[in-house]
């Protein structure tokens, strides 16, 4: 399989996950789409250097999160914080969403906003866990030990629960 085919296969398999990863770093829909494209671009550029030391999935998420961090660090800190707070306020808003929005859709949106409102570290680890990565894979992506993954994930889960509580518990 040549590089172009591999790239297309990665995008077909992980495209939705990469889009969600972008959503975990950027609240604004326009900027989110730009970030998603930047992530795809970074994967395409990094793919020739991938030697198979880790799994391809780990490699893809590592590049995606690095790009997300880079995207965030480019923004003015006060604006990034304002966007986070805005997302958090939307989570805490007890009013129902538009009638046309299905309950499942509202639940997904609340979860996305709740994740986005978390501090960066729990947000990263939760995003990876929600994509179904094992502790070992998360450790490889973040460059920490599996024990730290377990501790941080447990803490992140509690934080997410507290963030979602004003909405009645379930996302």
């Amino acid at each position: 399989m040549d590089l172009d085919e591999r790239y297309r296969e990665i995008l077909r398999r992980e495209g939705a996950a990469l889009r969600r990863t972008a959503a975990a770093y950027e609240a604004d829909p326009g900027r989110r789409e730009d970030l998603f494209q930047e992530i795809c671009l970074a994967i395409w550029q990094a793919l020739p250097r991938f030697r198979g030391e880790a799994s391809e999935r780990t490699f893809v998420f590592r590049v995606a999160h690095n790009r997300g961090l880079s995207h965030r660090s480019r923004r003015r800190p006060d604006r990034a914080r304002a966007a986070d707070l805005d997302a958090a306020e939307q989570v805490a808003d007890p009013r129902p969403g538009p009638d046309s929005l299905a309950e499942a859709g509202q639940r997904r949106e609340r979860l996305r906003r709740a994740v986005l409102s978390l501090p960066l570290e729990p947000r990263q680890i939760l995003t990876l866990a929600l994509e179904g990565l094992s502790h070992k894979e998360i450790a490889e992506v973040l460059g920490i030990t599996e024990n730290h993954v377990a501790v941080r994930l447990s803490r992140a889960r509690r934080t997410l629960c507290q963030t979602l509580e004003p909405m009645g518990g379930t996302p």
Partner: peptide, 20 residues
């Protein structure tokens, strides 16, 4: 709890082909 969140989280649209 995590499984419920995972199901909600992963239920999102795939990228459009022209993005590539």
């Amino acid at each position: 709890e995590l499984r419920e969140w995972m199901a909600d989280w992963q239920d999102a649209a795939a990228p459009s082909p022209q993005i590539v």
